[in-house]
Simulated scan of single mutants.
Amino acid sequence: MPPRSVNSAKTELTGIDRRILRALQEDGRMTIQAIADRVGLSASPCLRRIRQMEEAGIIAAYSAVVDQKAVGLPVSVFISIKLERQRAEELDRFGAAIAGWPEVMECYLMTGQFDFLLRVVCADLAAYEAFLRQKLTQVAGVSSIESSFSLGQVKYSRVLPI
């Protein structure tokens, strides 16, 4: 399910809404009844609150978290990108270029020394070299690429502290 855009009206989260969100982040496969029991509601109002948060864009998507090592992608590379110019057109062009690359798990527009920070996953060093040569270095306007390889993951969480 693709992320929805956030409703322009600001949605106030109640304590129950926050408990529902914590429950869903910890286990997105919980039944409505299990969530309702956990937060102290009956199923109908619990489902109504979840639907409201989906419509407001607070709940953006549902997905499974897949272990990258278990599927043959053990290498994580953090790549800092500097563009030749930081005009809106160049920033947008870079974003559009990398948007369809499945190796890029995350991409952030940054302040400071570099313009973008990417997290890329791949099977091995040869796969990263192919990604670098065939894709990243082919993007017009890139002035520097700095790669840092992860030695191990210390913490990973998709649960926001709400």
Rank of each mutant, 00 (worst) to 15 (best):
R51L: 11
F131D: 00
S63F: 14
S157A: 12
L47M: 14
G57R: 05
L160N: 13
A43W: 04
S147E: 13
D37K: 06
E103C: 01
E146S: 10
P102T: 09
G57A: 08
I50H: 00
R51H: 13
L136P: 00
V39I: 06
L91P: 01
S76K: 13
M1F: 09
R85F: 12
A127V: 05
F131N: 03
L73R: 10
D124P: 02
I20P: 00
V71L: 10
T11I: 14
I20D: 01
A99I: 04
Q25I: 01
Y156K: 15
A36N: 04
G72S: 12
Q68C: 02
Q153C: 13
V142S: 04
S63W: 10
W101C: 02
A60V: 12
S144E: 14
V75T: 08
E12W: 07
K135D: 05
V154I: 15
F114S: 11
R49H: 12
D27C: 07
F94L: 08
D92S: 11
G57K: 03
G152K: 15
A127R: 03
L160G: 11
I50G: 02
G112M: 07
R133C: 09
G152P: 01
I50K: 02
S42L: 13
R4C: 04
G112N: 08
F78H: 13
S144Y: 11
K135R: 15
T31F: 12
V142K: 02
V142Y: 09
R29P: 01
K10A: 14
S5D: 05
A36E: 00
S148E: 11
V121L: 09
L117S: 12
Q153Y: 09
L151G: 06
L47P: 01
V104F: 01
V120D: 00
V139N: 04
L151Y: 14
L73G: 02
L118R: 01
M1K: 09
L132K: 07
G152C: 13
D124H: 09
D115M: 02
Q68D: 06
Q86C: 02
V75E: 08
E146F: 14
C46M: 10
R18F: 09
W101N: 04
C122L: 03
V66K: 10
S76M: 10
G112H: 07
Q134M: 08
R119C: 04
R49W: 03
Y108K: 11
A97R: 03
I81H: 03
A36Q: 02
L21D: 00
S150C: 14
D115Y: 02
I32H: 04
S157C: 05
T11S: 07
I145M: 11
Q113D: 13
S150E: 12
L109V: 15
V65A: 15
S148L: 15
E90K: 03
L109I: 14
